[in-house]
Design a protein around this nucleic acid. Sequence first.
DNA 1: TACCCCATTACGGTTTCCCATAAAAAATGC
DNA 2: GCATTTTTTATGGGAAACCGTAATGGGGTA
Lengths: 221, 221
Amino acid sequence: MITKVLIAEDHESANISVQKTLEELSITNTSHAYYCDDALNKVVNAVKAGDSFDLLITDLYFEPDGTKQVIHSGTELITAVRAIQPDLKILVFSAENKPATIDLLHRELDVDGFVRKARHDAKELKQAIKELAQHRRYFPRHIMQLIDKKNVYAFTDFDITVITLLAEGVLQKDIPSYLQNKGIKPSGLSSVEKKLNQMKEALEFTKNEQLIAYCKDLGII
Amino acid sequence: MITKVLIAEDHESANISVQKTLEELSITNTSHAYYCDDALNKVVNAVKAGDSFDLLITDLYFEPDGTKQVIHSGTELITAVRAIQPDLKILVFSAENKPATIDLLHRELDVDGFVRKARHDAKELKQAIKELAQHRRYFPRHIMQLIDKKNVYAFTDFDITVITLLAEGVLQKDIPSYLQNKGIKPSGLSSVEKKLNQMKEALEFTKNEQLIAYCKDLGII
DNA sequence: TACCCCATTACGGTTTCCCATAAAAAATGC
DNA sequence: GCATTTTTTATGGGAAACCGTAATGGGGTA
């Protein structure tokens, strides 16, 4: 049974509508946090007081506004609260639609649900909370389809390093020295060229610019 | 006096919170539209019935979901309703923070107010509606400051076309023929090179890959 | 019309990238 | 230990990109 919920969301308006949705599910014991640090504090205090939360609904992106914060993003918040209260159910409510990010939430951070801020998000939110109350996870099919699509090529750490360097403006011929400085091998220019060719061939691209655009779209870099 | 309001917003949750905010201002005569076409229809019908709206609160971005729509964006909607009902007050409520867009709203589309979806957006929304009821415009100072600050480079249609072609894998030397086919001028290779250099210099980049990454981050392409 | 100004285009030299091939090094198998 | 295979690195020629400069062309003005 879900009765006590914490909402971590910097947008006041989003906060309001989440609360309203919860009210429609007869959940009135809600707390709000407009900053990640504040959210973590509330979780800590609730556990200390022996009155812990049942569910955390959190956004991923929190806009900096000048006030110093230790935790800056929803993903960091998730790992932090998990360390404090492992059994806390976590539902991510975000406009995020990059497959890489959603995949991270699903597999590595192992959150209980994801609802994308979109046309029918309030209805979805209700559905998700109902599912979570039944101890099921909520990742709608149309979201998971996004994830599968990205599996046309599995980017390795090496791939990502090389692409990131390119996106930062490093000349291809200068990449080997960067790799050596970081102790990454292989570091030869030919190896870099080979990797780039492999990626481009797998994705049917011909130019580095396409790779950059593709990786940006998927949130890989 | 503002009594009858139309909310054009594809996100259900945002729609809810706007309505709640209006209720707190004792405005209960509200209509909702989840698509631009629907919003325009409601404006038209209200005018025909001699019971027109006092205020339109609209988002800028409406996510396509397969249903065929004539109008696809808030900016198009704004020009369309202005043609129907010139005295309709328009308040844009959007997460948009690109200086160029806000500038467009302020100067060319001449909307009555802009509230950014951000931390205290509900409070701002209330304030904005109060201002509009007094026949004043509402563009908070911190928004207008954004315009000056972040305006590092204003991308033209030509810029975006060139960058898009690069991101699609078109060779730089082949871009001129593409431009000619689309009837865009200038179309010379030197002009393309010059534009790319201008952009890169303005943003302190050295490589096209950086430009692609930057434009992807900003959602320009 | 003649002239100037500006934007556009054309051209040539240099650098970087691309690609195929070969050499070197490392891993594997017997 | 030695041969084989695979991975990594090196090299060179040709294509594309980069960059400065010169030529072209169109619009405005007297």
